[in-house]
Design a protein around this nucleic acid. Structure first.
Lengths: 218, 218
DNA sequence: GACAAACTCGACACTGTGTTGATAATATGG
DNA sequence: CCATATTATCAACACAGTGTCGAGTTTGTC
């Protein structure tokens, strides 16, 4: 938001890293510590040390460690959303294909930062702000899925049945639980190379019943 | 395990509550505090105060607040499992009916202690012991569902398709996410009076495709 | 080269945890 | 009915982490 501090002058080494560099360093420290410890085992002092600053200085940049996590999650969510939006625009007429692309995008971006994702669900349990972020993300996905289901019903490709929003909520919850349990690597979980296929199969059966959707017109 | 302390003699009021009563009192204190605060906002001192003892004395009974929660969860899980087992024995030939009864049982028992259930998922995120308990519970459900799906396929009622265990894992994850988000009462969530119906519909479509199962023989 | 803004941290007060060691209540069995 | 083992209790301590205050130091700007 605020205009970033100017980059250091050419040829003259800055005495101190700029504020933005520090902020980024804190984020990176958290992400890298999360590879080896769980979120609540990481103290603010760990983050400060990792970024080469003292604990009070940490508070100059973030108000809590949850805020750092939130900022990491924000980045991942917007990357995944962007990829999914791109798929949607291109493939509006082939729902099954779109589903696969969108799911693959989420799998890819959250999987690439699995430690952060898993920490997000951990912190979301206890912290209202993190929980609110997750709920907003879920709500966006649910809304998109609901709209998709209603559109397919309207064009006659999918049968009527459960309220579209209820169905969407259930399926989104399934995705979340399945993906994150796969990322967390504890049993029971679906092997990562099947996950997307399993989810898609269930989405299609739940939405279309026995009749797989035809592409609208090729 | 250890034989319980004798009940106080008739007519003679015990100076102190017995150990077992205290233990139970601690459990009740946690459950009642969970109605109004989240698990991590509750301190060991709160539990001790609630049970009328000092903090060190708390450690005589439990080694941590997670242990208290674990003990509450154990109770709920075994109640729900018992109810579900009872349904299974009686209704082996009518799978859809069994599914409804089992799900209703879980909905009922976990819903009756929703604060504890929600705290369980919260604590499970951060605490290995709690997480292990959940995973064992999930594993048991997944195994049961896998066996059920395979049985239905063997008798020709359900079509082949996804590996039965993968399908089971996905559906169990869905149940968990959907039920607990309904209990937690935050959006997006399915209204409590639809939850079981929505879940059953998806289970049936995912397992049987377009062809709803017939009872074996009436 | 002085002034404001951005940034930094030592030192403090506070909250919660887990342990130790001394003490009190109760049960048991000679 | 009293010795003695067991069970139960807690004051006091050492510690780890949090969040804030106020006094300092850079750094950009005019």
């Amino acid at each position: 938001m605020a205009p970033p501090t100017k980059a250091p002058e050419r040829g003259r080494r800055a005495k101190r890293p700029t504020g933005d560099e520090r902020e980024q360093l804190i984020r990176e420290t958290l992400e890298s510590l999360l590879e080896s410890k769980s979120f609540h085992e990481i103290s603010i002092d760990d983050l400060a040390k990792g970024a080469g600053i003292s604990r009070p200085t940490f508070y100059f940049y973030f108000e809590s460690k949850e805020a750092v996590l939130l900022s990491l999650l924000d980045t991942i969510v917007s990357q995944a959303d962007a990829a999914s939006d791109a798929a949607q625009a291109a493939l509006d007429q082939n729902p099954a294909r779109f589903l696969r692309d969108a799911l693959t995008a989420y799998f890819h971006y959250f999987g690439a930062h699995r430690a952060v994702s898993v920490a997000g669900t951990e912190a979301g349990a206890g912290n209202p702000k993190v929980r609110t972020l997750w709920n907003q993300v879920r709500e966006r996905w649910v809304a998109a899925a609901t709209a998709g289901i209603e559109a397919e019903r309207a064009r006659g490709a999918a049968p009527e049945g459960l309220p579209a929003r209820d169905l969407a909520i259930a399926l989104i919850n399934m995705n979340e639980g399945v993906l994150f349990s796969a990322f967390a690597g504890e049993q029971p979980a679906i092997a990562e190379d099947h996950v997307v296929d399993v989810l898609i199969d269930i989405w299609l059966k739940a939405i279309y019943g026995g009749n797989p959707p035809e592409p609208a017109q090729t």
